Amino acid sequence: MSVEERAPLTRERVLAAAMRVVDAEGIKALTMRRLGAELGVEAMSLYHHLPGKEALLDGLADALIAEIQAEAALRVDAAGWKERLRQTFLAARVVMLRHPWAPGMLGARTTVPARLFAYYDGIVGTMTGGGLSHRLAHRAVHAFGTMALGFTQELFRPEAAGGAADVDAAEADLTAMAAALPHLTAMVAAEAHDAADPVLGWCDGQTEFEFTLALILDGLERGAAGQR
């Protein structure tokens, strides 16, 4: 029996094992039986800590927010509100790239992860502490959308409609329609993702993420000067 098998079964240990399974095999592979096998226990023993698949997914969502908070604590060292937010969101991006399945899972949850309120409270506190009004901070939260969690909510995702999830394949499909969609095709050709640019979706690359983040932060800075 391994040291891990002898260790007490806790909610934290179960969620850590679930994270390993999903990282290695994808979210569809995560079942209570598979998780029990990962931990070397019977699946029924997991229900005391996480009573069912939905509770398990809620726990994973909460664990992701905790990981974002921990990553931000390591990376954020700026004094100004604008740079602190930039570094926080980029820290969240690191976590999402570490777990590429996470954006899809977070977007599908119908319950709010317990830690999310505290995370956003810190974001709002950073802005108001930097002189932004609560009204402007409220508008900013809406403008940021899921960027605060390290990814962008795409309007169209090929895999959601049963198409190709592969970025190159999706762009190739669009290019094949060049005659019917000349403007979109030209844009795709001009903005094809660089191999070194990490992506989380069809049009959620690091370059786009950082550009959009800078655009919003610059706009907020200008808005803060007028406090409208």
Rank of each mutant, 00 (worst) to 15 (best):
D121E: 15
T212K: 14
L181Y: 09
A18P: 02
I123L: 12
P51R: 14
Q153Y: 13
A24P: 01
R157N: 08
L57T: 02
C203P: 00
H99W: 10
D166I: 10
L56G: 00
H99Y: 14
R139L: 15
A165L: 12
A72Y: 08
A186R: 15
G129H: 13
M127C: 07
T111M: 05
V188Y: 05
H142R: 15
A79F: 05
A118C: 03
E83Y: 06
W202H: 13
V95W: 10
M177W: 04
A29L: 04
P182T: 13
A72D: 09
R33M: 03
A179T: 13
H142A: 14
F144V: 10
L106A: 06
G104H: 06
M32A: 05
A160H: 12
L174D: 03
G40D: 06
V41P: 00
F209G: 10
A196L: 10
M105H: 00
L116M: 15
L64A: 10
A17F: 00
A79L: 07
A170W: 08
A224W: 02
T111P: 00
M32C: 01
K28D: 06
L220C: 06
H193M: 06
T146V: 04
Q227P: 03
A148F: 05
V112H: 12
L149F: 14
A172M: 08
K82Q: 14
D62Y: 01
E12R: 09
G52Q: 10
M127L: 14
A179W: 05
A29N: 01
V14A: 03
L184Q: 09
G125E: 08
A172N: 06
V22N: 00
G80W: 07
L181V: 04
G226Q: 14
T185R: 05
L213Y: 05
I27V: 08
R222N: 02
V76I: 13
P51Y: 03
L217R: 14
L64P: 01
L74R: 15
G26R: 02
F151A: 09
Q153M: 15
P113Y: 11
A73R: 13
F89S: 04
R33H: 03
L149R: 11
I27K: 02
I65L: 06
R115F: 01
D23T: 09
E42A: 11
D62P: 01
V199W: 01
T212L: 12
A18L: 03
R6N: 06
G205F: 03
A164G: 08
T110Q: 14
G52W: 05
T111F: 03
E5A: 15
T128C: 06
E83A: 13
D197E: 09
A72N: 04
D166L: 09
R34M: 00
R157P: 02
K28Q: 08
I27H: 00
R20D: 03
Q206G: 10
E67S: 09
L46N: 01
V14R: 00
Q87Y: 05
G219S: 11
M1I: 12
I68A: 04
A137I: 07
T126Y: 03
P103H: 05
V3E: 12
T185Q: 08
K82S: 14
